[in-house]
């Protein structure tokens, strides 16, 4: 039997950010070789905001002023083991830097070489990367006060209005015991549900507890249900082309109330029953795949893992009256 690994998947999406009247010029400035703050009353704030953080009053672009290029470290921490997300592949400091001319600090990276070179109150100065796109990572800081050489600037470049922002999160968690038994059942072409000790209703797939009666269910409550059942609900999906979408043709996702179960399995994928023939009440049975394995287990899915079946086919039995399954139309 194939081994069931723990859950491990990465969720990521390329978001965009509109930069607006203050952050836009700030990022454009970093690209073009200068650091901007905003004058707010008798203070200069850097990095700048669209408002006065003290009272929320509006601060417009007429208040932008240049600060730096050198500044003073007001606090710092040493990153001894950088990860791929960090700006350097070698140890460095994150520091709160109050740039000359500013009254607030900006968090940024100092390429100091060694922790021994870092101290609160030390002077640091900005350096511009050769490749700059209008991002806070276009610059970094080094110990000292020597102003950088003026970087080469593309005078025709548009101001930064929208930036891309790829966000990803890797999720790892152990499979819950009830879920593991369910998935192990599928590997043996068995569908395992759990019978609630409170009301006798069979939940497939189970959450490991009866949510209505609020009682836990254990291995003793496991029961096998049939691979045959009744369609209780379906959706015909015309795919929308979003990032990561792999579907191109219309298809059906349906819910099936398996014989012996009181909850439906959702998201059952139907590709080869004609859409015009499909209906609530239709009797279906699973056609198992010969060689079952999983690549995307999780603890919460409400269907069967798609990789366990070739397809679902009509049993040849007469349709069930839709009224008899109307309580199961999720």
């Amino acid at each position: 039997m194939a081994q069931l690994p723990d859950i491990d998947f990465t969720l990521e999406y390329p978001y965009t950010r509109t930069t607006g009247p203050i952050i836009g010029p700030f990022l454009t400035g970093l690209r073009d070789g200068r650091i901007l703050g905003t004058r707010v009353g008798d203070r200069v704030i850097c990095p700048p905001l669209e408002y006065d953080p003290a009272d929320g009053s509006t601060v417009g672009p007429e208040n932008l002023v240049e600060v730096g290029p050198a500044g003073t470290v007001e606090g710092w921490t040493w990153v001894a083991e950088p990860t791929s997300k960090h700006p350097f592949d070698r140890p460095f400091a994150f520091a709160q830097i109050r740039l000359d001319g500013a009254d607030t600090t900006m968090l940024h990276a100092v390429d100091a070489g060694s922790i021994d070179n870092m101290s609160t109150g030390m002077r640091v100065v900005v350096r511009f990367n050769d490749e700059r796109v209008g991002s806070v990572t276009d610059v970094y800081f080094v110990p000292g006060e020597d102003a950088p050489d003026a970087p080469s600037v593309d005078a025709d470049a548009e101001p930064v209005g929208i930036m891309e922002h790829l966000i990803g999160v890797r999720i790892r968690e152990p499979l819950q015991p009830f879920r593991k038994r369910f998935l192990e059942g599928l590997l043996q072409k068995k569908i395992i549900g759990q019978r609630s000790p409170a009301d006798g209703k069979v939940h497939v797939p189970s959450r490991g507890y009866d949510a209505i009666n609020r009682v836990p269910m254990t291995e003793d409550d496991d029961v096998e249900v049939s691979g045959r059942g009744t369609v209780t609900s379906y959706t015909e999906i015309t795919p929308i082309q979003y990032h990561g979408q792999t579907e191109t043709e219309p298809y059906i996702r349906c819910s099936v109330l398996l014989d012996g179960a009181d909850t439906t399995i959702g998201g059952v994928d139907i590709r080869d029953i004609p859409i015009e023939e499909f209906k609530v009440g239709m009797r279906l049975q699973i056609v198992w795949r010969d060689d079952i394995s999983f690549d995307d287990e999780d603890n919460r899915a409400y269907g069967l893992n798609e990789s366990v079946y070739e397809r679902w086919e009509r049993t040849g039995e007469p349709d069930v009256d839709p009224d008899l399954v109307k309580e199961h139309n999720f």
């Binding site: 969720l11 999906i237 995307d296």
Partner: peptide, 21 residues
Amino acid sequence: SEGNATWALSGGRSGGQGAGG
């Protein structure tokens, strides 16, 4: 406009069914 609701609501992994589905 800065993301995609159909993607976000399914956590990127519910078969692209979306709210309408």
